[in-house]
Amino acid sequence: MNTLINGIFKRDMALAFRQRSELAQPLMFLLMVITLFPLGIGPGPVTLQKIGPGVIWIAAILSSLLAMERLFRDDFWDGSLEQYMLSGQSVAAIAAIKVLVHWLVSFLPLVLFSPLLALFLNLTVDMYVALMLTLVLGTPLLSLVGAIAVGLTVGLQRGGVLLALLLIPVFIPLLIFATSAVDSAALQLPYRAQLAIIGAMLMLAMATAPFAIAYALKVSQN
């Protein structure tokens, strides 16, 4: 465990802070995409409130695709990944730590950002609370499942669009449950069921994704 914390966690954190501007870009993208909706659809508060949850989640998924790409890219191209694999540590554990760091540096800011987004799209306080909860439960799921596809496409020169093609259909259930939770909150209905389902998907991903990521990275090394 110590080796993982000292060798991977601290390293990735140090790298993330050194590449702050690269991390900020997906967030800026998210903010701009959300700005486009009132401009394209009209700023009526009722309309915005109606489309708000969906818009925020779609923008989050799209920006996550941009942020995700850098998860293993540098390590693959500079050979660090080879060194991890020969370090004697379990690749699944290394992958889990890397995904954790990635979530901390690219999705946690998004969650912190979300009050601003809620304000832009005229969400009520109840809706905002629901949105926050779905983001907290749902974005780790994006990171974990996304990392599998990133592991598979990391060795390809033009993996960016392919990554989106692979991941968007897989993220659809999350989008449905998350937006429906926020919609229920808007109607003062309980939304524990949706949160429970997202939580269940997250548990499933936490249990299986690290192994799938490890296998994917091994395939990419071959």
Partner: peptide, 10 residues
């Protein structure tokens, strides 16, 4: 192998 992993995720 890669497509296989994706089929399983799917």
């Amino acid at each position: 192998k890669a497509a296989g992993v994706m089929a399983l995720v799917g």
